[in-house]
Simulated assay, not measured.
Amino acid sequence: MNSPDPDASLIALEAIPDGGFAEVEAVVDGDAESLILHRDGGAVRAWLNVCPHAGRRLDWSPGQFLKSKDGLLVCAAHGASFELVNGECVAGPCRGEALHAVRVDVKDGAITLGMNGEA
């Protein structure tokens, strides 16, 4: 399991617009990973930046994510659509699967990797 420095900031909360996304790199379970961060007010959810359908990144350009008019995260490669609470795929080729959640915490305006890195 991951043993992050609890004070090591991934990104400042204010760097992500409310309702928006950011991509950051972090070490999760000993591997360097790309993470998707989604801000909802003062809360942040994170997932590995890997679509369960084909194992590709979800961003269409580094750090640029598609959001549907219904508020779903959309995979740029094959159009799979994920809800933003649990990362569940609700439409597209991986319906019923989910993004791999990673625990993050917000402390003093900074987003940090949560203990164990697991949601």
Score class of each variant (00 low, 15 high):
77 A>D: 08
63 G>D: 07
105 D>I: 03
13 L>A: 06
64 Q>L: 10
54 A>C: 07
99 L>F: 03
36 I>Q: 07
111 I>R: 06
11 I>L: 15
25 E>C: 12
111 I>Q: 13
3 S>L: 13
8 A>T: 14
8 A>H: 15
10 L>G: 02
35 L>M: 09
10 L>Q: 03
89 C>E: 01
45 R>Q: 14
50 V>R: 15
43 A>F: 02
49 N>W: 04
34 S>N: 09
37 L>K: 05
116 N>C: 06
58 L>R: 08
48 L>I: 11
110 A>M: 14
40 D>R: 09
19 G>K: 03
37 L>A: 13
81 S>M: 14
114 G>D: 12
36 I>N: 07
64 Q>H: 12
57 R>N: 05
90 V>H: 12
22 A>H: 02
49 N>G: 13
65 F>G: 00
58 L>W: 11
69 K>G: 10
6 P>T: 07
74 V>C: 13
107 K>T: 13
100 H>G: 01
112 T>Y: 01
79 G>W: 09
34 S>G: 07
15 A>T: 12
10 L>Y: 10
61 S>R: 12
68 S>W: 14
7 D>S: 15
73 L>R: 02
32 A>P: 03
110 A>Y: 00
69 K>D: 10
18 D>A: 08
96 G>H: 07
61 S>H: 13
99 L>Q: 09
19 G>L: 03
47 W>L: 05
5 D>K: 06
3 S>H: 09
72 L>G: 01
94 C>S: 07
91 A>M: 07
115 M>N: 09
81 S>P: 01
16 I>Q: 06
66 L>I: 13
117 G>K: 00
